[in-house]
Design a protein around this nucleic acid. Sequence first.
DNA 1: AGGGCAACTTAGCACAGGCGAC
DNA 2: GTCGCCTGTGCTAAGTTGCCCT
Length: 752
Amino acid sequence: MSGDHSHNEDQVDGGSRFNDSHKYKDKYKEKEHKHKDHKKDKEREKSKHGNSDHKDSSDKKHRDKEKMKHKDGSTDKYKDKHKEKRKEEKMKSIDGKVKKEKENGFASPLHLKSEPEDNFYHSPKHEKSLKRERDDDDAEFKPKKIKIENDKKAKKRKPEEDAKSKKTKNKKGEVADGKKKAKKEPEEKWKWWEEERYTDGVKWKFLEHKGPVFAPPYEPLPSNVKFYYDGKHMKLSPEAEEVATFFGKMLDHEYTTKDIFRKNFFKDWRKEMTPEEKAKITDLKKCDFNEMNDYFKAQSEARKAMTKEEKLQRKEENERLLQEYGFCIMDNHRERIANFRIEPPGLFRGRGDHPKMGMLKRRIRPQDIIINCSKDSKHPEPPPGTKWKEVRHDNKVTWLVSWTENIQGSIKYIMLNPSSRIKGEKDWQKYETARRLKKCVDRIRNQYREDWKSKEMRIRQRAVALYFIDKLALRAGNEKEEGETADTVGCCSLRVEHIKLYPENEGQEYVVEFDFLGKDSIRYYNKVPVEKRVFKNLQLFMENKEPDDDLFDRLNTSVLNKHLQELMDGLTAKVFRTYNASITLQQQLKELTSAEENIPAKILSYNRANRAVAILCNHQRAPPKTFEKSMQNLQTKIDAKRDQLSDAKRELKSAKADAKVRRDEKSKKSVETKKKAVQRIEEQLMKLEVQATDREENKQIALGTSKLNYLDPRISVAWCKKWGIPVEKIYNKTQREKFAWAIDMADDDFEF
DNA sequence: AGGGCAACTTAGCACAGGCGAC
DNA sequence: GTCGCCTGTGCTAAGTTGCCCT
């Protein structure tokens, strides 16, 4: 009660927020523009340095200096300092970055080829991970503890024992040694949640897989599909042609009209051209990709028009690929891999206003790939005539394959499906951590309320930020490198321009208006009344600052998480999201479900509870393109059903009258049948109406994300059991596979 | 302390395929 | 059997967190 403070009132009727967000759309656009301008500056700066050998940065320095002027007011800014530093560093590092990229291998394939292949045991990575081992030991304390706390069925075993026995033991008691046995296992469902967990940072003892499936090689266009430059046909080299097709495919998309997209694309495309092509093709505007576009459209039409047999064949081929590459053997069990296909090359499309949109996403080759598997497994073979970049045997990580992507230079992984033990355990553990937070959340809330009064600025900031994270379920908000990604923020990275303070607004006191772009450039818009102390603190934090200054200049995610760690073992900012999401679902289910209602109505209640969470977490979606139409269709159906109902009622009435006169068995029976018909139609009508309500309320809200990532599945399972709802009504097949552990273990009295 | 990397979770969107209505 | 819509799935970008190193 006291614990679950006030979100729900604020959040549940989030409908208004979305309506608001409509109203504010225009204003928002304006804002976006403003912001863009501001960003353009930065971009200009960036590209200056990027393209040329970093000219002088005098105008930047000037700006920075100016900033300092504003800043030297009340507080010394630890964060600003490093913000500034970051900027300078970036300029300095451009040189270094290029070099680094070469080392990583995107810029210099030759270099890569010469890398020794016998690095199984000597790779620096490997050494690193060995070093890490010891630390992991302490870290692994946690799961162990959780296990004891929460899994009564688990028997304890000592770690050393574990190593051996893990190998020999499995549920059916067969002696297994890795692959051989595992393959035999028909394995009706494996209940990994009834088994021991690794406690020493080891993620597996045995891992075997077939490696990734590469993107199909480029197929040159048929000669009748032409590219025109400046109105004249031009035959492109295969390399240039391939990249051109990436653009050609996207012609219908809005982003091929965006400046940044075009600029980035053109720059990268030119790198693939022969010198002759490069000399000739100098202006993207003069390029005509239309025939390519038509060609690909025709191809996709052809695919749709394939005969049944062809489609079946395709399906079978896919299934074969899945069976061969889509599974691995991990510790005696055949487990599904999530993404065994390597991402095909194409043009990068970041979300929101991404500075790198349109850049060429390179084709990944075997020599870019790092394989991870056990030493004693059958290693995957690279395609004939090729070599892997490296094969390593690191059982402290869960991935099977990795490569470095060329847009941000980040690492991509092939990992297991959510239904796998390794993902499931982690998921379960996440909810256990959130449940531990439940036990001490009151204490933590009291603490941060105290901290609002602290003498120290950094503590006040920390406390106010934590309050937002708790009350509004904001994300932590790491700092991001400017110019590398879209300009989005989370709690710790909020800037002054993202909030507005209203001492009084629409009859409420101390209202804060949030308006910013969060993860995936999804807009967060919310007006919330806050406590006076918070309000006053915010005023203080904003004093003498520019709109683009950090609101919490003495705070970052690392500081915050360190603090949280001290408050509770395993506590981080995102645990609040999980906790608040799950507790909200539980509460809302209690509140909204009424015993008398039938199953569709109960499911509507479930969806409403789910929706409350989605609103809390700001899980939005673009209204489906067909929304209006499908809503209309549904309405037509409802109207038809209504007519049908009144017809049925009329018939019932006359049958009754008839029966009164005749008083025979036959007419009595007729009345009964008509009665039943009316009932049935009423039910159908009701179902349709419920569906309409549900859909309308769901227009811009995505339920999937919270269902999949934030809601302890045991709450839903318990609810289903309690009310006799088949769990299939709540979870589809994939979801049931992911949550098999919860479906198996939660009883109707489960309490989050 | 804080930059940077590695590993892993969370996110929305596009599109195909299946299913119900006709 | 065909059509159109809805759902589920795949895809991959974009976050968070923890750790190492300097």
